[in-house]
Write a protein that binds this DNA or RNA. Structure first.
Lengths: 157, 157
DNA sequence: TTTTCTGCAAACTGTTTGCAAAGGC
DNA sequence: GCCTTTGCAAACAGTTTGCAGAAAA
């Protein structure tokens, strides 16, 4: 026997999550597993409501409170990142050391699109050294209009 | 008597706000004036609750709904900026073309401190050009520990 | 068997909205 | 006098919490 059934489906992130949760003394529950599965497949930040709907849609519905609770645990273990792009609604996404990125948010349709930029990271790294703070993390959000919305605006019905 | 008491007290921002509101067809109400006065004196982002308390403290209490409504108008006229530094609580601050800045947020005490950095602005400007978006604005939040909290952590009671 | 996890429902908190009275023009 | 602004209270939405039953170790 082995732990295959739950651990072999995973990417590196999935496996690391499983390990870190176990090390931290957490047990394996249905809600936690369903959430890990979903997060493992997501490309970019989701709101709790979106997560709830997607899980229900795939027949793996779990309680909303569990979603908040598990996401909170995962955030503390640095397995997911909570981001806020405006309107006070939190979004969560997988946190992988090699997939650091930021977000473009469309002011019109609310679309959230990830991007990376080395120059930006360098600038932040440089200024962090000079700040009176001990900087441990950062978020950058660019606001604007996505291609689709600009096209729609330029082509009235 | 004259209009002195409300218009001459102002900085450039205060006057511009007054003008822009008038141009947009808004009238002068007590709540709006009290809020403009307060915003004009603030250095950095405040939450609605903080604003409410400060106004009450100075004997110029106004309804919370009015604070939200006026801040919303001011935001649309680009006179104030709404920022979110985490925990889903919005903060508002005066928006002056020559005072663009970002924020350092202490993970422990929640302190919000403004900073500016030309290298950062340049990096953002450069990458904005290459994004599929038409970028119209940006927010940068650095998280970490402020000097006070680090000192407190290093000096246990 | 013991401890953790989960779902439900209720409580909370920040924000928005409807409406009648007060106030600007 | 007409129309805007204001304050109050109720409505809302996202999030958190308490608790009893289900499930993991």
């Amino acid at each position: 026997m082995d732990g295959m059934s739950t651990t072999d489906s995973g990417t590196a992130w999935r496996r690391r999550a499983e390990d870190r949760l176990t090390d931290a003394g957490y047990r394996r529950g249905g809600a936690r597993t369903a959430l890990l599965d979903l997060l493992d497949e997501q490309r970019c930040a989701r709101t709790v409501l979106e997560i709830e709907d997607e899980l229900r849609g795939s027949g793996r519905a779990i309680g909303r409170a569990s979603i908040y609770r598990v996401l909170d645990e995962l955030e503390q273990l640095h397995l997911v990142q909570r981001i806020e792009v405006g309107q006070g609604i939190a979004r969560y996404e997988r946190l992988a050391p090699d997939h650091h990125h930021h977000h473009l948010v469309c002011r019109e349709c609310g679309a959230v699109v990830p991007f990376t930029d080395d120059g930006l990271e360098e600038a932040i790294h440089r200024l962090s050294a000079g700040a009176g703070f001990e900087v441990t993390g950062h978020d950058v959000v660019l606001h604007g209009s996505c291609a689709a919305c600009r096209a729609a605006a330029a082509t009235p019905a």
